[in-house]
Amino acid sequence: MPLLEVKDLSVSFGVIKAVKGISFTINEGEIVTLIGANGAGKTTTMNAITGVVKSQSGDIVFNGSSITNSNPADIVKKGISMSPEGRQVFPQMTVRENLELGAYTVKDKEVTKNGIRNAYELFPILKERAFQQAGTLSGGEQQMLAVARALMVNPKLLLLDEPSLGLAPLIVQNIFNLILKIRDMGTTVLLVEQNARMALSISDRGYVLETGKIVLDGTGKELMNNPKVIDAYLGGLS
């Protein structure tokens, strides 16, 4: 049984159909990537899974139970957490407060403490910056904070929306190494990326979204070698 199964999901904003009936699955322990151009519906799909936007039709099944259109708080409690697009950290709050907020749905203080300890271990820079306002961190540090914050609840499934957005190539490499590390620690990852080459190279499987529909799927390697993907997303060079 897959960890997450999305069946025929559709999302509209008013008259605009952002996602037009897509289906895909994520198995436990995998890194799965959604790639696609701007406006393909990647972020909307993510937001529908976390309940931040409501879907029109279709079903999302997580760990055997339907979470379609549940309240975001309940979905977080079930074990899905997201690092939103564009490093949405809370800029006027300290790094530590940001982390504490990541575990907001968990009332047990020990879990929060452990989470913070683990976050500092995984991202030592965050410990040095613990009492700085998150808005004063560099872009890469903010991204790390966003990921660390999402990991605070020990999610079964981590959704990462464009973690490489606007970061220097070296930092991007770091982030992707971290994603592999997080997977090896036992968290399943759904990745949304425009940096398709990088994303596919670390992914077990991938789906290609085009204007709200899935047009291709396969393993990371297959997609990387697919002429259509090379043409459209990898700049025509292989």
Binding site: V52, N71, Q88, F90, Y104
Partner: peptide, 16 residues
Amino acid sequence: SSIRDDEIAADAMGIN
């Protein structure tokens, strides 16, 4: 404070 700083992120953290 999290709502002030970023409503969408607050929502994604499971804050009502």
